[in-house]
Design a protein around this nucleic acid. Structure first.
Lengths: 227, 227
DNA sequence: GCAAAAGTGTTGGGCCTACACCCATGC
DNA sequence: GCATGGGTGTAGGCCCAACACTTTTGC
């Protein structure tokens, strides 16, 4: 029987900004095991709590972040993945607009909290490196067949932000004309009559907005989103 | 803390044959709760047992089936999914050649075991209906971008078996010429100089074999399998 | 010889890729 | 006026979908 087996949840939360690219929200552990090492936010689930609620609670407790997109990633259950005892972790994968959490501060349970570039990960507690690798794979593939990238951007964004995001996610240069043609052909973006705030030189870009209602409607009718 | 939370594994095992199409391996429960109802094979995991080992063990104990393809599907953890207590289930998704288990017999833990057509599912214990729906979705989409269908067929098969399988999985008629052209273009099938045993009228078909080594090699070189 | 299943090529259209110049703004 | 970033169209090739007749076998 599974009496002594415990369950945790862990969250791989992605953020994005132009300068740093894709980053992950990590906490520095305050307690043993792996005290002082970076780890994914997460923790034990309560007996009367759904898995998603546990993730959202732990995430908020440890980092102050409220997530806008969350999906289950994978369950990690190797016998020896935690030195304390048999602990199985249900990992989740989340997206937030990291501009809302620029100056993130450690809460009581963690020694430190920060956004860390995925190109630049430190060594991590437990099997969290493996979890992150899986999450990155998932993000990279999912973003190609579902329009989830918007969760990482402001709700109104210039088209170039989307280009940059996809370029950095897919890790290869994008043909701006083809990309725009294709993306617009899905008919899920609304072109606004507003312009991006000017930052330095260059022509200001028009702002766009993701229209989720339209996306859902087209999906019903067999739209294939694919980049 | 998660002291009182228990963990089970469940297996959605798919089989296939020409007459019945896609079927799932189910057991009729011998004990409460849901005594006498059909359910997925599965059960509690042992403290020193990896998740996959638990699935394989439970599956063998309850049905005598040894799986050849197994992957994790999803973890179901709604607070009230089990009337006994808080039980979280890690569901797996498996494929076997059901010809090897034509006359399957109930073992000690189950009242009955059988292959049930997915078009014809009875009511099921727990949230197993939801689990199966998720597994079916996964099978249908996965078979389009990874060559896993062979696990359901004999190791040597006439091309028409593959056609029929894909037709039944994707639930739409297949253009035989285009399908064959495309599939052969991946270069992962070996054409043998043997012919299928004759069953009734009709010209006997050549036998083919999946060449996993070739598949892996081509995958390294960026082969995109996609049907 | 007829019914059943296997084997086999070509063509047209649509989509994707490749590619370069002009425009609006800040300094 | 120059540097920076935004906006935009076309042509060629490739891939995919559509489509039907012949061959081999059992009865």
């Amino acid at each position: 029987m599974s009496k002594k087996i415990k369950i945790t949840v862990d969250a791989v939360v992605f953020g994005y900004d132009q300068e740093s690219g894709i980053r992950i929200l990590l906490v520095k552990r305050k307690y043993e095991p792996f005290k002082g090492e970076w780890a994914l936010p997460g923790g034990f689930i309560l007996e009367s709590e759904n898995l998603e609620d546990a993730v959202e609670r732990e995430l908020y407790e440890e980092t102050g972040v409220r997530i806008n997109y969350l999906e289950q990633l994978y369950t990690f259950g190797k016998v020896d993945r935690d030195p304390r005892s048999r602990i199985i972790s249900v990992a989740y994968f989340g997206l937030v607009n990291s501009n809302h959490y620029k100056d993130i501060r450690a809460d009581t349970d963690a020694e430190d909290v920060d956004w860390i570039k995925i190109k630049d990960l430190p060594s991590l507690a437990f099997d969290h490196k493996v979890i992150i690798e899986k999450a990155v794979d998932r993000l990279r593939s999912k973003v190609r067949y579902e329009p989830i990238g918007f969760e990482l951007l402001d709700s109104k964004f210039p088209f170039s932000d989307l280009e940059d995001l996809y370029g950095s996610l897919l890790d290869k240069p994008i043909d701006r004309r083809n990309f725009k043609k294709k993306f617009m052909s899905f008919g899920i973006l609304t072109e606004l009559n507003e312009f991006a705030p000017k930052k330095g030189a260059g022509r200001p870009g028009k702002l766009y907005q993701f229209d989720e209602a339209k996306y859902k409607a087209r999906k019903e009718n067999g739209l294939f989103f694919e980049i």
